[in-house]
Design a binder for these strands. Structure first.
Length: 112
DNA sequence: CTGTTGACTTAAG
DNA sequence: ACTTAAGCCAACA
């Protein structure tokens, strides 16, 4: 009974903007990618895509936070991500170009 | 509080 | 597809 208290935090508002971004990033399923706009929208601010990127850059725990699954609206990866791009390929992500993900196949589409 | 920066997004050329 | 310009939001000096 007392175990759920901490886990419920991810649905509460005790966290700062960045903290919320991390929680959502962790919710991205394998073989999929999410855009900053999607995450920002989940936070209640579809225009905060920038702040989302900043939060992920802060990335206090890259081993726990799947920031490498987050791409921009076009599925384009930021410079410096090419190492992690290989990781995405291993996950099952498909690339249309050197720095473009096939959002048609790998975009994180929430169903509920 | 003001100004700058940044892993963004949209619109126009 | 790429560049320029404007807008929005959070963190930092």
């Amino acid at each position: 009974m007392e175990v759920s208290r901490v886990e419920k935090k991810e649905e509460k508002e005790e966290m700062s903007f960045s903290e919320k971004v991390y929680q959502i990033a962790k919710r991205i399923p394998p073989g999929k990618v999410a855009t900053y706009g999607q995450i920002a929208a989940k936070l209640g601010k579809p225009k905060a895509a920038r702040a989302v990127g900043n939060a992920l850059h802060n990335n206090p725990d890259p081993k726990t936070i799947l920031c490498y699954r987050v791409v921009n609206q076009e599925g384009r990866l930021a410079p410096g991500f090419r190492e992690q791009k290989r990781k995405l390929l291993k996950e099952g992500i498909e690339f249309n170009d050197k720095n473009h993900v096939d959002l048609k196949r790998c975009l994180w589409q929430k169903s509920g």
